[in-house]
């Protein structure tokens, strides 16, 4: 897979505070990429460098193989975590203004805004002032303003915060559809469930350094501990079997950890041969949330 964005040894220092320390990773074209990290890790600074708001001290960023400084109309759109819209302006006028600032001609902006407002079923808001709408509604308006320019790269910072589950789901569907139609998405969030659900690649950043980077599946593979969950019929009879491999017991489920070189089939076989009625047998894959917590804590203690 070709890379849409390549970030190469970016460094950025604010006064004495090193915000980004030799950050490198790449984002494959058409990926949904999770940019993760605790608060103050340097995510926003990195995004601001990608969107050319800040200039890096050293290093370079390539967009489709060209350094971003040399790209005239960078096809990147960014929805910051802090929502900001003109409260006294009408929704329609506001969207047109923001689209024009992105360099979209007026006519094109109008049709595109119509299209998206119809899609979100909010055409009737066109002449409403923003402060007549709820916070969740602002989010939809903001989302439209971010995507009207049909960017190749869409950067979303906490896009679901403040949305009810129905609207969050609606937005999720739109993001997936955009991605299906070729938009690459950088997704910065603290909601790890969403990352598990949506992202195919992630980078985890802490104190300005990348501590994890790769595809979600390979990262999970890397951090799994070979623990298998076995659901049994008669817990009391199973209790004493394979005690050296038993990690914990939970209701009628037993957790066994495989030894080095041991295959899952061997574990199952030995369980069955000792007469245990196995109802379910599955590997415990760590969630991104667990990986996030353990890895960030580990890097904090370094």
């Amino acid at each position: 897979m070709e890379n849409l964005l390549e970030i190469r040894s970016i460094n950025k220092t604010f006064q004495s505070n090193k915000a980004l320390d030799d950050v490198s990773f790449s984002i494959p074209a058409n990926a949904i990429f999770g940019l993760l990290g605790p608060n103050g890790a340097g995510k926003t600074t990195l995004i601001r460098i990608i969107t050319k708001i800040f200039a890096q001290d050293s290093g370079e960023i390539l967009f489709e193989g060209t350094p971003i400084q040399k790209v005239e109309n960078l096809s990147i759109s960014y929805m910051p975590e802090e929502r900001g819209l003109y409260k006294k302006m009408k929704v329609g006028e506001q969207l047109i203004y923001l689209a024009q600032l992105k360099g979209i001609p007026l006519k094109e902006a109008r049709t595109s805004i119509r299209y998206w407002m119809e899609k979100f079923d909010i055409v009737h808001w066109y002449n409403k002032k923003l402060d007549e709408l709820s916070k969740g509604m602002h989010q939809k308006v903001q989302f439209i303003s971010t995507i009207v320019s049909k960017p190749k790269l869409l950067i979303l910072d906490e896009p679901f915060s403040g949305l009810d589950p129905i609207n969050a789901n609606l937005l999720k569907q739109e993001i997936l559809e955009l991605n299906k139609n070729g938009t690459t998405i950088i997704f910065s969030t603290h909601r790890m469930g969403d990352v598990d659900e949506l992202c195919d690649n992630i980078a985890l950043i802490n104190h300005g350094k990348i501590i994890l980077n790769g595809s979600v599946s390979s990262i999970k593979e890397q951090f799994k501990e070979n623990i298998f969950k076995v659901a049994v019929d008669n817990p009391s009879s199973a209790k004493d079997k394979l005690p050296e491999q038993l990690v914990k017991v939970e209701d009628d489920s037993f957790y066994y950890q495989l030894k080095e070189e041991q295959k899952p089939g061997e574990l199952l076989k030995s369980l069955l041969s000792s007469g245990i009625e196995v109802h379910a047998f599955s590997e415990i894959i760590p969630t991104i949330n667990e990986i996030f917590i353990t890895q960030v804590e580990k890097s904090n203690h370094l």
């Binding site: 929805m79 910051p80 802090e82 819209l85 003109y86 409260k87």
Partner: peptide, 13 residues
Amino acid sequence: EKTSRIIEVVISS
């Protein structure tokens, strides 16, 4: 514009 965070939206374009 600064306190209402509009700036963050506008500044990338």
